[in-house]
Design a binder for these strands. Structure first.
Lengths: 275, 275
DNA sequence: CCGACGCTGTATCGTATGTTACGATTTTTG
DNA sequence: CAAAAATCGTAACATACGATACAGCGTCGG
């Protein structure tokens, strides 16, 4: 039975000393190329000494280093030569390659983007690309980190970005600063938070453009939103998954960065100068 | 301009002597694996002598054999890292909707879970399932929201969970509370933050179990980590993507919830009662 | 607190590897 | 057809590579 080197590693990884484990991680990170280099180079990449590398390969069951390299080469040859190698056979042990909940997540992301048109994304990016208009972000109990993540990026590429966090009384007072040209990004999945809905309504009354990220059951805030992004959240797990919304957020960040390229490049340059 | 080795060969193939041409054909036939073997083996496969191999690589423009091998390795590394070559496009039916960056993200998630074994996940879950041991979470500039997201869930299903946020001086003092049984979850992708590394080292000296979420270039914290999760972050965008790490985090949350089902159900019940 | 064990790095050794010189053989050219 | 040129293989060489012995160090158990 020909068991792959990568599996050998993940099997015995935990029964290894610290140094050899570093070797294992370095090999996985640059698989399999670093294993084809010399022992000295390998050791340097892994940050350990040469003998540790040799002990590492010995623990995997090889009698010497060349034998270990030969195994890698055979594996590589088999992988590259078979034209059907694209289907994802490299892990014969694990069926489907990924755990079911991850598979569901992948499916969710895919499905989410089938319903979010590129035009919709472009429209939202346009809204966000006006540097005069302020951008506010807020989220619910589990989704606020996603809002935070998005805010961390937006702050870099454009001014007037504010993540509304902390005490409710804290951000409620920010309503006073919101005007017709401004944008409010809300993340809200079930169970939908009452406080968020109240906040959204007030903002809506002030003429703020609301962009809502929610799940397929639609937060009540959708009523006030200019744009609604529906992300699939169902996974075989006790929790809902926010991964799809996370990816949508990253996509918006990327697109907006592209759009503002000229301006944001100068801005980033200035920021570097301030260090 | 970096022209591939294979192209170099086909360019100059016809201006080669018979022996070197045999070498070229042998290399193309088993590309690039035979080129990574020793000169003697290469010569044997090609059916020529060692010096002929040397003259062959010299004609391609390389000064010596190791330089030639290094070029092959670089080429191979670049080829393996770009997902387009391998897993390719397993979904030819619905390639329409998703933008390229999303496609890359999906591929990243898939690839990430090829290297994270289920056993590794199970081990990490075991570490996290001890309610006596405290769990601390921290992240870098862009990844701290992911840590926050994970903390929000963990807090519900088990006690002694603390997200280290805010001022550096703030969480540094928390070291005093960390002991040998405790677990520290760190998210760190490039550019790796100096402050995080210092913190990790201190925690490591106190005997804390460190679980590291990083990118394929391995944060220096890997040196101190008991478990290292390598997430793919490359996307066709100015930013790196944290989506893969996000999904890993969700997976851990789900698995841990399942493991603690009995305890956490009672705990959640109590929480409901407190409203 | 102390002894034993295991892990890791430094230094050293033998050897396999890449490299070069030179002569044999084939191919080319006048 | 002969001489010259070019190509190729055999053999000797030097380097650097993998392998090993040993000592320092931290860690665990008594």
């Amino acid at each position: 039975m020909k068991t792959g080197v990568a599996e050998l590693i993940s099997d015995r990884m935990d029964s290894m000393p610290a140094g050899e484990r570093r070797a294992a991680q370095a090999l996985i990170a640059g698989y399999p190329v670093v294993g084809l280099k010399t022992v000295a180079e390998f050791s340097q990449v892994a940050g350990v000494s040469s003998p540790t590398i040799l002990r590492f390969v010995a623990r995997l069951g090889f009698h010497n280093y060349p034998e270990f390299q030969a195994a890698l080469q055979d594996e590589l040859a088999a992988q590259l030569q078979s034209p059907a190698s694209r289907a994802g056979l490299p892990q014969p042990s694990r069926r489907g390659g990924v755990p079911p909940t991850v598979e569901a997540t992948l499916e969710n992301i895919h499905e989410t983007f089938r319903h979010v048109s590129e035009k919709q994304i472009a429209d939202m990016v346009t809204l966000l690309s006006n540097p005069k208009a302020a951008v506010f972000l807020i989220g619910g109990r589990f989704t606020d980190p996603v809002a935070h993540y998005m805010a961390a990026h937006l702050t870099i590429i454009r001014p007037n970005v504010l993540h509304l966090a902390g005490q409710e009384s804290n951000w409620r007072d920010r309503l006073i600063d919101m005007g017709k040209r401004d944008v409010l990004l809300i993340f809200d999945i079930r169970r939908y938070q009452e406080s968020l809905a109240r906040f959204a309504e007030k903002a809506h009354q002030r003429g703020v453009h609301i962009i809502l990220f929610t799940d397929q059951w639609l937060s009540p805030i959708a009523r006030f939103a200019r744009h609604v992004v529906v992300g699939r959240t169902a996974v075989p797990s006790p929790w809902d998954s926010s991964a799809a919304l996370f990816v949508v957020a990253e996509t918006l960040i990327g697109e907006l960065t592209r759009r503002l390229e000229a301006d944001s490049a100068r801005r980033i340059g200035e920021m570097e100068g301030l260090r």
